[in-house]
């Protein structure tokens, strides 16, 4: 059988061994269905067992396998060799997600994203169901109410939008597109009463106003979440909530005089 191969080059880096990351080249067999992840798995099992990267579901839902492919953030399991035109002189380049610290090879420090995610309080607030006994009845939510936030609930926490965001690259304290989308998801949920608790972070200098609206985050999102829209709607909310704060503040001052 005549097996076609493709050249790819992969970032290698071990903090225990290397001063600097470098690129290593591999030739992998290829057909119409070979994904970037398949190629990495082939290398791991047949060529070089020391290559490290994250993956699990191989069906674009667990969010583990984000990498840069020729400079663009992609899910390795949902990106295919067939989509890249290349010659032996120009291999497909696979690198760790941009803007994160690299731990080893293609593995980055995901806590840099998850800390932001956890900071936006991504859970229903004010529904008073936190008792040890179970609630008896489900709340009502119309399909229209559901569809207000549904898209923002589809985030798989892959971090591609962070790798696409120039602001996050400059300021790692920026809450960032994925986490803002999640905050927005809860703010829009008819069952939630936690918006006032989430707004201070979104209003802060590391919140929505850090965004300069490049919009690349939404382009790279593999799940159609459109985090840029969330950030933008967040700006409107933020402007409103700051106006209210301002108004309340001046009223208070007025009362004290």
């Amino acid at each position: 059988m005549n097996v076609q191969t493709r050249a790819i080059e992969v970032t290698r880096y071990s903090p225990e061994r290397d001063k600097e990351p470098y690129l290593q080249r591999y030739d992998v067999p290829f057909d119409e269905s070979t994904s970037i992840l398949d190629a990495l798995n082939y290398i791991k099992e047949h060529i070089d067992a020391t290559l490290s990267y994250r993956w699990s579901c191989r069906m674009a839902i667990c969010g583990s396998c984000g990498v840069m492919v020729n400079g663009i953030p992609k899910l390795g399991c949902k990106d295919f060799l067939r989509l890249y035109d290349h010659t032996p002189e120009t291999p497909i380049r696979i690198e760790p997600l941009a803007h994160f610290s690299v731990e080893r090879d293609l593995i980055v420090n995901m806590d840099e994203f998850l800390t932001h995610l956890e900071a936006v309080k991504p859970y229903i607030i004010g529904d008073n169901v936190d008792t040890a006994s179970l609630p008896a009845e489900a709340s009502l939510q119309s399909p229209a109410q559901l569809s207000r936030y549904q898209q923002f609930a589809n985030c798989i926490n892959c971090g591609l939008c962070y790798a696409a965001c120039p602001q996050f690259g400059l300021n790692p304290e920026f809450v960032g597109p994925g986490a803002i989308a999640l905050a927005h998801r809860y703010n829009l949920d008819s069952r939630d009463h936690g918006k006032t608790e989430r707004m201070p972070l979104l209003n802060s200098k590391n919140g929505v106003w850090s965004c300069t609206f490049v919009g690349f985050c939404s382009d790279v999102c593999p799940k159609g979440v459109d985090p840029a829209a969330a950030v933008n709607q967040g700006k409107v909310d933020s402007a409103k909530s700051m106006l209210i704060q301002l108004f309340k503040g001046s009223q208070l001052q007025g009362e004290h005089q």
Binding site: A138, Y149, Q150, D189
Partner: peptide, 11 residues
């Protein structure tokens, strides 16, 4: 349990 999930925000 499914009701509890609903109250926790499951869409």
């Amino acid at each position: 349990e499914l009701v509890q999930m609903e109250r926790w925000g499951c869409p």
